[in-house]
């Protein structure tokens, strides 16, 4: 790994233990940490928001202190340390290439091999007198607890899903109750993911906006820039409106949109935008070929963006997404082709 993107952690002090110096990080986040997280939520340098793998101290840890294992995505590391106020602990950051715990576990980079490697490289057995560490539960898809034990002698204790439950987990003698083991997907968790979900498809969206702007210039008698500014802008605007509505309302209304398949949930958003635009008297939606075209394009666009949210959600399975895509994608393609055909027709009649 290059040093590119490595973050300094504000308030870090040297911590000497058994004649070796470790970085001691505060259990509070400062404004730079919060700003950094916010930037990542908007996709700014999100893939280069790293902390160095290694051993960190929080509080005044000793040989008996617990060890928490974390990914080297700084947002993961920050979420952990901010919950360790009043707890003397070690943090072992492993190299997950700057990816958060759950996603890295899915890829295997937060996994048995890397953990065992770090135990050896960082000489964990020389620091602590016990033989266990706490791994976030969402790391489990990449970790075999029994294999870790066999390979390096350390027992894996699975911590809670949410870092926020760590104080309760520690107070209960390193025990998580059933609720701490459940992944939920409440409104607040869905909302923070909206910007990335919208930005993820930015490239095709820009391309489609350009298409509407340029193609909107054609009319019966040829091409005019004034039509680009009128029909083109209006069409690009309608497209962006339904795209952003899907990107926001899909996640916000996820539990109440009818249907289990995300592609179906998305359709409702597009139809709602269509109806709203019609009732508000948008010229493009007044009737004829133009209305017909948007009646197809809008549900297709919102269906695609909400379907894309499967990757962001916390409960969809590979088999399930493949099942819905096998039906939804052909329908989306047919809907889009006919919709664009009708839209082009509307330019010339």
């Amino acid at each position: 790994m290059t040093n590119d993107g490595l973050q300094n952690i504000g308030g870090t002090l040297p911590y000497s233990f058994n004649t070796i110096e470790y970085p001691k990080v505060p259990a509070q986040l400062d404004w730079a940490d919060r700003f950094g997280s916010w930037r990542c939520r908007w996709g700014v340098d999100r893939m280069r928001y790293l902390v160095s793998p290694g051993i960190y101290a929080v509080g005044q840890p000793v040989a008996e202190s617990p060890v928490f294992v974390s990914a080297n995505y700084k947002m993961s590391f920050d979420r952990l340390r901010m919950e360790l106020a009043g707890i003397d602990a070690w943090i072992m950051v492993i190299d997950t290439k700057g990816i958060n715990v759950w996603c890295a576990a899915g890829k295997g980079t937060f996994g048995t091999d890397e953990i065992v490697r770090c135990v050896e490289e960082f000489k964990l057995a020389d620091i602590v007198s016990h033989k266990s560490f706490i791994i976030p539960q969402l790391g489990a898809p990449g970790v075999s607890a029994h294999a870790v034990k066999t390979q390096c002698g350390f027992k894996v204790v699975y911590g809670p899903v949410r870092a926020a439950d760590i104080p309760a987990f520690m107070a209960a003698g390193m025990a998580a109750d059933a609720e701490m083991r459940r992944v939920r997907f409440p409104l607040a968790d869905r909302v923070v993911l909206i910007p990335m979900d919208i930005l993820m498809l930015a490239k095709p969206v820009v391309f489609i906006v350009m298409f509407f702007l340029l193609a909107g210039g054609f009319h019966k008698r040829g091409f005019s820039v004034s039509n680009c500014l009128h029909t083109g802008c209006a069409s690009a605007g309608l497209f962006l409106l339904v795209y952003i509505a899907g990107g926001i309302l899909g996640p916000v209304l996820l539990p109440i949109l009818p249907g289990r398949a995300f592609s179906v949930k998305g359709v409702w958003v597009g139809l709602a935008v269509l109806l709203a635009g019609y009732l508000l008297g948008f010229r493009q939606l007044a009737g004829g070929f133009s209305l017909a075209s948007w009646a197809l394009i809008m549900p297709v666009v919102s269906s695609v963006i909400v379907m894309n949210f499967t990757g962001t959600s916390t409960y969809t399975s590979l088999s399930g997404v493949m099942r819905e895509m096998r039906i939804a994608v052909p329908l989306q393609i047919v809907g889009a082709v006919i919709g664009i055909g009708l839209w082009i027709t509307s330019l010339f009649v």
């Binding site: 899915g106 590979l318 997404v321």
Partner: peptide
């Protein structure tokens, strides 16, 4: 279990 990413873009 056949594990993998339940993600439309990934698929």
């Amino acid at each position: 279990v056949r594990s993998g990413v339940g993600c439309a873009s990934g698929i």
